[in-house]
């Protein structure tokens, strides 16, 4: 697994993709920092983190689009799948590579927090709560998009499918109230990423929210392994 993790992280930075992803995240964080904190004269980082939700939603599919589809296109999956490495290790290696790049990209928020702490007293537990929320949410989305990229050998299709899912996750909150079949509307409400994430940005560290994100992550990682396994037999 470490071999794949190592190669994938290098691959992100051998092409412009890694730099662009990290750069764009830094850019948005910087801008929101200016707009909310510096311009708005506040130490409250809620603004930054709640807007980053939408940014992350639309950047993650770009981060993950190549993970499994590129291997199919280049036929390098033949190298990975015929080596003495399990499918689970391949999926985890690729997943954690994307997670590492994502973590690097959201380090900008920590830099912002440090800057704020120099200007005024910072409520670190709240900031870490925000940060944990963002990590959990991002990691979950990475797992979902990784699953999507296992279906196609086209990176573009993987990205578009990712955007579609992101868009759905964004709209899910406006969808729930207009459906009058109770089970469906309750179900959609329960699936809302935004509700779960918002509680983190409000400074609430709720065990249920953590379990929600973690369980969806694990579920989609299992789906990804299963999807690769299925392709072997079809």
């Amino acid at each position: 697994m470490t071999a794949i993790l190592d190669r994938e992280i290098r691959a992100y930075f051998q092409s412009p993709l890694g730099y662009i992803f990290v750069g764009v995240m830094f850019l948005f964080t910087g801008y929101f920092f200016f707009a909310y904190n510096l311009y708005g004269n506040t130490t409250d980082m809620r603004g930054i983190f709640s807007t980053l939700f939408a940014v992350v939603l639309f950047l993650i599919p770009i981060l993950t689009m190549r993970l499994l589809s590129e291997d199919r296109k280049l036929k390098t999956d033949q190298l990975l799948l015929t080596a003495p490495v399990s499918r689970t290790a391949i999926v985890l290696g690729k997943y954690f590579a994307a997670v590492c790049v994502f973590l690097l990209s959201i380090m900008s928020t920590m830099a912002v927090a440090v800057v704020i702490s120099h200007l005024s007293k910072t409520e670190w537990p709240v900031v870490f709560g925000h940060f944990i929320g963002l990590i959990l949410f991002g990691n979950t989305l990475i797992a979902i998009c990784l699953f999507l990229s296992s279906f196609t050998e086209s990176q573009v299709i993987a990205a578009i499918a990712g955007f579609a899912v992101s868009f759905f996750l964004m709209l899910i909150d406006t969808l729930a109230p207009v459906i009058n079949i109770k089970i469906i509307s309750r179900g959609l409400e329960g699936l809302s990423f935004q509700n779960r994430y918002t509680s983190f940005t409000l400074g609430i560290l709720n065990g249920a929210d953590i379990v929600f994100f973690l369980s969806i992550t694990v579920m989609f990682l299992c789906f990804t392994v299963a999807s690769m396994e299925k392709r072997r037999w079809s």
Binding site: R7, A11, Q14, S15, L74, K75, T76, D77, Q78, L79
Partner: peptide, 8 residues
Amino acid sequence: QPPLYPDM
């Protein structure tokens, strides 16, 4: 088709 990563 040799399974190569072209960027490596």
